[in-house]
């Protein structure tokens, strides 16, 4: 039988609340991404859809440790909808960007997961893997120059991205500068179609932390509690001057690379192996098992979040698409130095 609230210590209560908060971000991300996937199949998305199914626990746990208001910076990658929400990105930023609304942060100039608000600490990713890490380093260096030493950064990468030179250069750079940076490596076993044994030869990517001279953690990325505890510790270590923290989460990508990809190359039996589970199913079972919520409350929560998502989609769908005749076509902030298009 579950303990009642009055029998719980404060620490346990906090841990339970943190778990439930994280679960909410995970569920919201899942509902949002399932909606986006349906819109993609209906041909209503401009461009592709990339989802983080199976990675929500790992992603949300990092996002929750970062505080936008305190000046923390966050560089999510393509499977970090949950982390983005936890960091404070509005659902509307996602739906507007995916649906091509001119009111979104990218105004139709970039799409889907290539979105952000750099002045609010949210780096707008480019497609080249590993390149956002040094950008986060630079933002932290700027804050150090200004004496804002309470800020930390969180960056996300997958197992495939760790093979990029940009990743190595930037993690080494963060180590040299002893920056308060959390590097979240979601080892989801596949980089597009390439399995991890064609990606790297070390036993566990966390072994690389030793080479960089930074602190590392290897965890079950489908275990929400493990994710929450580890990122909390990593954030505390980063904030207290212990330099970069690498957290490797073992999990399985439960989707294609994008929604265009049926992922037929992923053997179904992988889902039954260690780290192959669905973090959302696992945490749902945990919450129900602990009687932190009952089935009715769970359904009510889903309905509430579904409503938020549907509203954000409807809003974005009603908004205008970018107008090429209203577009300024200036790539420079220094307008008078813009070349224009010679000959036109």
């Amino acid at each position: 039988m579950a303990e009642t609230a009055s029998q719980l210590s404060d620490a346990k209560l906090t841990a339970r609340q943190r778990y439930l908060d994280a679960f909410r971000w995970m569920l919201l991300a899942r509902i949002l991404e399932e909606k986006l996937a349906r819109l993609y199949r209906a041909g209503m998305i401009v461009g592709g859809v990339y989802i983080g199914r199976g990675q929500e626990a790992f992603s949300a746990a990092l996002g929750m440790q970062l505080n936008r208001q305190e000046g923390d910076v966050y560089a999510p990658l393509i499977r970090d909808q949950a982390g983005r929400l936890a960091f404070g990105e509005a659902i509307l930023d996602a739906t507007r960007t995916y649906l091509g609304s001119v009111k979104g942060p990218m105004r139709g100039r970039d799409g889907n997961i290539h979105r952000g608000r750099p002045k609010q600490g949210l780096i707008a990713m480019i497609s080249h893997l590993g390149t956002a890490i040094s950008v986060a380093n630079g933002m932290l260096v700027a804050k150090r120059f200004r004496g804002e030493t309470q800020s930390i950064g969180g960056v996300c990468i997958g197992d495939g991205g760790t093979s990029a030179g940009a990743f190595h250069e930037a993690v080494n750079q963060a180590a040299v500068e002893k920056l308060p940076l959390i590097i979240a490596v979601a080892d989801n076993q596949f980089a597009y179609s390439t399995p991890r044994d064609r990606q790297f030869a070390c036993k566990d990517l966390v072994d690389r932390a030793i080479g960089y001279g930074i602190e590392g953690y290897s965890i079950d990325g489908t275990d929400l509690n493990a994710c929450l505890e580890t990122f909390a510790k990593a954030a505390q270590r980063a904030r207290s001057g212990h330099g970069p923290q690498m957290v490797v989460g073992h999990l399985l990508r439960l989707s294609g690379h994008g929604e265009h990809d049926d992922a037929s190359y992923i053997a179904p039996e992988l889902k039954n192996q260690q780290y192959g589970g669905d973090c959302l199913e696992i945490s749902t079972a945990h919450i129900l098992g602990q009687e932190w919520m009952d089935e009715t409350e769970m359904e009510a929560l889903k309905a509430e979040l579904q409503e938020q998502v549907d509203e954000a989609v409807a809003t974005a769908q009603k908004e205008p698409a970018p107008d090429p005749f209203q577009e300024s076509w200036h790539a420079l902030a220094t307008k008078h130095l813009t070349e224009g298009t010679p000959g036109i």
Partner: peptide
């Protein structure tokens, strides 16, 4: 790469 990236972030 990281030199330019750090400058961009700053």
């Amino acid at each position: 790469d990281a030199i330019a990236g750090l400058a961009i972030g700053a």
